[in-house]
Nucleic acid binder design. Structure first.
Lengths: 198, 198
DNA sequence: GTCTATAATGGGATAGAC
DNA sequence: GTCTATCCCATTATAGAC
């Protein structure tokens, strides 16, 4: 962990964000001091303030970056044509894949909402709602097309996201099931959950 | 909030636990000081140590009490006879009802796991696994009876619990839907999710 | 059972040398 | 860009009066 003085490596900024994300996920924002982040990076605490104006902004930037990357990745991955059923399968597999690969950021972006100042909270909440609306739109389209039976699309969208995000609480790479197998198990559950023929 | 000196009310203990639970849920364990808990109760910080040996034990007792009450309430509520389908409906409705009425305790018992010392963590994790096993057992019975099609009962149990606990992120009493309506919407989703006819 | 006072430690953030 | 040193304040927990 210890580093020599004045490394001038030019990559301290990313290293600060990585260390903060990992420590916030492990111990919680309030429990992690700037000194501990600095120690993880291998600098003194004062040096961190070259990369963030304060601790709150560091947290907010981590969360905003995560949410924006989530939305951008889904935008790049969502199928252009196809049925709502195709879109829902793509969403299910995308959500599991993206979130299991970024478990720390997912955890922080949910758990530390309460430690955001009101203005920052509203921005993150808006991005979260945008993502929920992506799922809701797919469900509404499926109802319109006739393949889905969903009484409450907004609630079903939040239920779907809660279901899928739950994978993060137990999934481990090198576990019994591969990511592809987990995707298949969950898509099977999701498919039934919204299907017209119950 | 301010109280006169030496109230001797005899109910300070429960008030300390209530205040701690509420503040931990709102701001997080690490962000809440003993002074803030004391101020909420209306005593000085030193007085809290008549009711808990330290802050960690206060957190642990809140979490253990919640988990034990959850298991006891389900034990009292789970149907003795009936099919696995009946049991699953009872579990679904029970979980939503119990957890929405104790949102603070649910939140703390999940979010503050990382702030428990290892020994305390293991105890809470054990209770959580006991609860998951209740759901898993119902699903396995349903498969044996032939009514359910569940490829991975343990994973499906965790998926079910994640789905149902997600209600807490959006449900508000006096919202558009009553608790009974929410239960019905979720039971409809759960029923389809495990049903043999997809 | 609660208060006041305090010990011992650690917190976020800044100043100025290099 | 990083270091050292420091300011000022908050933290948990304890001691002893009442």
């Amino acid at each position: 962990m210890a580093r020599t003085q004045g490394s001038h490596s030019g990559i301290t900024g990313p290293r600060v964000r990585e260390a903060a994300l990992h420590l916030f996920a492990q111990h919680g924002y309030a429990a992690v001091s700037m000194r501990k982040i600095a120690a993880e990076v291998g600098v003194q605490a004062g040096a961190l303030y070259n990369y963030t104006p304060d601790k709150q902004t560091l947290l907010f930037d981590l969360m905003r970056t995560h949410m924006e990357e989530l939305l951008a990745a889904w935008d790049a991955c969502s199928p252009a044509g196809g049925t709502a059923r195709d879109a829902l399968e793509a969403f299910t597999r995308f959500h599991i894949r993206f979130n299991t690969r970024r478990a720390d950021a997912v955890f922080v972006s949910y758990m530390e909402l309460r430690n955001l100042e009101p203005e920052n909270f509203n921005i993150i909440e808006g991005l979260r709602r945008d993502y929920e609306t992506e799922a809701e739109t797919i469900l509404r389209r499926g109802v319109a097309e006739g393949g889905f039976a969903v009484a409450e699309p907004r609630i079903a969208a939040m239920a779907l996201i809660a279901l899928l995000t739950g994978v993060n609480t137990w999934f481990r790479e090198r576990g019994r099931l591969s990511l592809a197998e987990v995707e298949a198990v969950y898509w099977d559950m999701v498919r039934r959950m919204v299907a017209n023929q119950g």
